[in-house]
Amino acid sequence: MSHEPEVPRKRYELEDTGFDEVPRKYRKYYRRWGGESDELAGNEVLCPVCKVVVRSNREVREGDRIYCMACMTRLRVVRVDGRLEGHVEY
């Protein structure tokens, strides 16, 4: 059985976008959601609980676990209809 080598993840340089609902040291990991027309980048997932965009400094992939600090939720990244979504994991 052969395994395809995993493609390295793209890295992202995060900048503070003005999200002010978490302590300063965490702010760059979150941004406001601009509504249905807001296209998420490869390192971003929408929190289904509080509708804040959660960001990582690397590309997110199915199976990753990330946190929304604005509403204290742990999310598992899943692929739905070809799109990556955050599902709540209690």
Binding site: D20, C68, C71
Partner: peptide
């Protein structure tokens, strides 16, 4: 902004 914490706390 405060309510985000409260709903998240309750649900989780």
């Amino acid at each position: 902004k405060d309510e985000r914490r409260h709903i998240g706390f309750g649900e989780n």
